[in-house]
Write a protein that binds this DNA or RNA. Structure first.
Length: 810
DNA sequence: GGAGCTTCAATTTTT
DNA sequence: TTGAAGCTCC
């Protein structure tokens, strides 16, 4: 026991050792939250609790995995593997499967993922003959999801005057019907969606006290990670399970609550103490991750929030570097600036690429950043994006597997129907669906005898349907005879998927086949592991129940690369150096979050999360113009920048006082030119940055672009600025009338006069997109006059004067 | 049933 | 601008 807690500080020890009643552990950023949780679990085991008496709930598979590994190291792997430690969804799914009979489901019901849900909703909206522009699938889905997470059933939804009024106000009065229909169809398909797992767990516990009592008895101690992210449904499950013994420990940080949009209720953590009056509060306030300056500037920001639990996060590390704020003329320049800084810092500090993270508020911002990284030969990875199990080819195969256990699974039938193509089109599918709806039976039932259900089709079609049905039945007969691995290999042959995939040519085909191979490899591993552990069941059912909720990334990318990700995705991670980009009004905070105080506070917490990811250095950047939704938009620096303690911001960083309120593209040239000249070392000079252009570039492998078609059309640094990119700056004063009058010099030309001003070799210029630079050459005349400019952040460019939106400065 | 066209919208995301 | 989704035509 002592050994487990020997590396903890006093606060952490108290939190770990207290287990007389409910406790709330407020764990500031970087305060060793996971350590406390894992040590607590280890202590409980040492105190004699059986692993299966401990319920430890997380939000992600990754968190659960990591925690399990750490517990395994503290105690023994065997005990660790027997803990009830996992995500809310995976553990309660397990319970639901066990208790399925109690609420009239088969134990191998299907689990619908977001795609299935949306596809079903789309069908229902069509069937109800509602306008799919008014009833957008995504908004209907989110209303239903929010309702479920708030434990509002379809019936409650229909009967709630408030909700009905709200739906009428937003011109979607029939969401209640869609909801009801959706629930009915899920039940018919013997399927549950993610939200149902929690919702139905509540229903189960509500309607079956005897079952609840069993699980209460089992879970002697309950721990919840990231409690600030719990929704009403999760809150209530925990409350019910902990009712008899009240031994529950929740850990979280209200300042890091950033998921209200998906139903998380920050009140759960704020009100924990009133919900559990006898509870004890522990605060972990020492941050071990970040320097004092980073912790303090984050504190100065978050102190602007009203709704929070009082705490004083502090660091005993060195003061560290000041926080830098960098301004750029455009999104492109911002990206180059960040890329340049990363390259420079890496060389100077002998750091790894992976010590750097570039964070942004929206995914769309990654584009320019990626481009800048590629141009600078900086290897990077974009974190997030599509997970393995969301790929079409994987989902198609899993649909077949799901059908084996549950042929009533409508979404899976539809998938299997469509792929590989069987000559059965939408027309036939619609007929089948209509019949299924009219007779109140599943699609599969209709398929078993289409004619009996009034499906009118020609013989060819009927034969195809019969062939499909036979194939499924034939496969079903084998399911229990083979391991998943063997079965799936057979399935790929029988269904024609293998043959079809071989037909695919090109890069995408290769990727698809590789993904299928990975799926098979995963299945093989599943079987091996099971056999090694002495579990004989390597069936598909066993596999599917394990995989149903695996939606996280199987990222094995351990290469040394810079991380690019949204701020949301960065939660829980840490990096030596963090760049937070796009610090502009309407981006961060996002436009949609400016309406209410609560939303604005969440955006502030989001920035708090971003800043506290940094260990040693943190820089925030903004651009004065940004290309968004096909237009160049001008923006003002984020209001949050003004909330940061100015004493912790590096001198020479962008001045924030002047541009506010002024016209976004005011005439102050000093603003743009001085703002980004400073460097981390505090040597504030643009020369310093220019010099890095000559640094020998360490070669590094080019990262694979995410899309299959790498963008090759980006303006090469040697070419004249293309009209296409010029179009991106409609506000630029450049016109055809800017033809220059050249003055000859010793080599080439020394200067040129144009309607934009006088350009001389060696002169400083300010370009709307590339920012500040110095002219190195002038050649050609008239329309062909080209000016070579060495830009501070964008490197050398040869620009056609005619198009360049550039003016001399100084 | 698929290639190619038009249209339309455009935070954040795990399970 | 991108991309997804729907529509048309072969």
């Amino acid at each position: 026991m002592d050994k487990i807690i020997e590396n903890l500080n006093d606060r952490q020890k108290e939190a770990v050792l207290y287990n007389q009643g409910p406790s709330l552990v407020i764990a500031g950023a970087g305060s060793g939250k996971t350590k406390v949780l894992t040590c607590k679990v280890a202590c409980l085991l040492k105190l004699g609790l059986a692993p299966w008496n401990i319920l430890a709930l997380t939000f992600t598979n990754k968190a659960a995995r990591e925690m399990k590994e750490r517990v395994a190291k503290l105690v023994d792997p065997r005990s660790a593997s027997r803990l009830w430690m996992g995500t809310f969804h995976s553990l309660f799914l397990r319970i639901l499967r066990t208790e399925a009979a109690a609420f009239g489901y088969p134990s191998d019901f299907s689990v619908y993922d977001t795609n299935d849900t949306k596809s079903l909703l789309k069908t229902i909206i069509k069937e109800l003959q509602l306008d799919d522009k008014t009833y957008k699938v995504s908004s209907v889905a989110s209303r239903i999801s929010n309702a479920k997470n708030a434990l509002i059933s379809a019936e409650d939804y229909f009967n709630s005057p408030d909700i009905q009024q709200r739906d009428r106000d937003s011109r979607m009065p029939r969401v209640a019907q869609i909801y009801a229909q959706y629930v009915a169809r899920c039940r018919q398909a013997k399927a549950m969606d993610f939200d149902d797992i929690l919702f139905n767990t509540n229903v189960l516990f509500r309607d079956h006290p005897e079952i609840l009592a069993q699980w209460q008895e089992r879970f002697q101690y309950i721990l919840v990670d990231e409690y600030q992210d719990t929704n009403a449904s999760q809150y209530l499950i925990v409350k019910k399970l902990a009712e008899p013994h009240h031994r529950v420990c929740v850990v979280g940080d209200d300042s890091q609550s950033i998921y209200s949009f998906r139903g998380a209720n920050i009140e759960n953590i704020l009100k924990f103490q009133s919900n559990y009056p006898e509870s004890k509060l522990f605060k972990l306030e020492q941050n071990y991750r970040s320097t004092q300056n980073i912790v303090n500037i984050a504190n100065s920001l978050i102190s602007n929030n009203q709704n929070r639990i009082k705490k004083e996060v502090f660091s005993q590390r060195e003061k560290g570097n000041l926080i830098q704020i960098m301004g750029a003329m455009s999104d492109v320049e911002e990206a180059y600036m960040v890329a340049g800084k990363i390259a420079e810092m890496r060389n100077r500090q002998y750091e790894h690429w992976a010590d750097f993270a570039v964070l942004y508020r929206t995914n769309a911002q990654s584009r320019v950043l990626e481009e800048a990284m590629r141009k600078r030969n900086i290897p990077y990875r974009v974190y997030g994006g599509m997970s393995f199990y969301q790929h079409k080819e994987i989902k198609d195969i899993l649909a077949y597997l799901r059908l084996m256990l549950n042929p009533d699974d409508e979404e899976s039938i539809k998938r299997a129907f469509k792929y590989p193509s069987k000559g059965i089109g939408d027309t036939t599918l619609n007929k089948l669906q209509d019949a299924s709806r009219q007779h109140g039976v599943s699609l599969w039932t209709v398929l078993e005898s289409p004619i009996n259900y009034g499906v009118v089709a020609n013989n060819g079609t009927l034969n195809k349907l019969a062939a499909f049905r036979q194939m499924i039945e034939q496969l079903q007969a084998k399911v229990n005879e083979l391991s998943v691995y063997d079965f799936t290999q057979m399935l790929l042959q029988v269904s024609g998927i293998s043959q079809d995939m071989l037909k695919e040519t090109g890069v995408e085909g290769i990727t698809h086949r590789e993904n299928v191979q990975s799926l098979l490899a995963g299945m093989h591993e599943f079987c091996q592991t099971r056999l090694e552990e002495g579990i004989e069941d390597t069936s598909m059912a066993a596999y599917l129940s394990e995989v149903a909720l695996n939606t996280d990334q199987d990222e094995e990318d351990n290469e040394d690369k810079v991380f690019l990700m949204t701020v949301h995705a960065s939660k829980g991670l840490e990096f030596n150096n963090v760049f937070v980009t796009g610090m502009e009004e309407n981006i961060f905070p996002s436009q949609r979050s400016c309406e209410s105080q609560a939303e604005l506070e969440e955006e502030r917490r989001l920035l708090y999360v971003a800043i506290t990811r940094a260990g040693n250095r943190c820089a925030l950047s903004f651009a004065k113009s940004r290309f968004r939704n096909g237009n160049t938009e001008f923006s003002r620096p984020s209001r949050f920048l003004r909330e940061l303690d100015p004493r912790l911001i590096e001198q020479g960083s962008a001045s924030l006082s002047s541009p506010f309120g002024a016209s976004p593209f005011g005439s102050s040239s000093s603003y743009g030119s001085s703002s980004y000249g400073s460097s981390y070392s505090g040597q504030s000079s643009s020369m310093n940055l220019q010099r890095k252009q000559t640094y020998p570039q360490r070669t590094s492998p080019m990262p694979k672009p995410r899309s299959t078609s790498p963008s090759m059309n980006t303006a090469s640094s040697m070419s004249a600025e293309s009209p296409r990119s010029w179009k991106r700056m409609p506000a630029s004063p450049a016109t055809a009338s800017t033809v220059g009058q050249a003055v000859p010099g010793k080599t080439g030309l020394a200067s040129v006069q144009s309607s934009k001003g006088n350009f001389v070799v060696g002169q400083k210029v300010l370009h709307d997109r590339f920012g500040e630079g110095r002219i190195t050459s002038i050649e050609g005349q008239g329309d062909n006059c080209k000016i070579g400019v060495e830009f501070v952040h964008s490197g050398f460019k040869m620009l056609l004067l005619k198009f360049a939106s550039m003016r001399p400065i100084e």
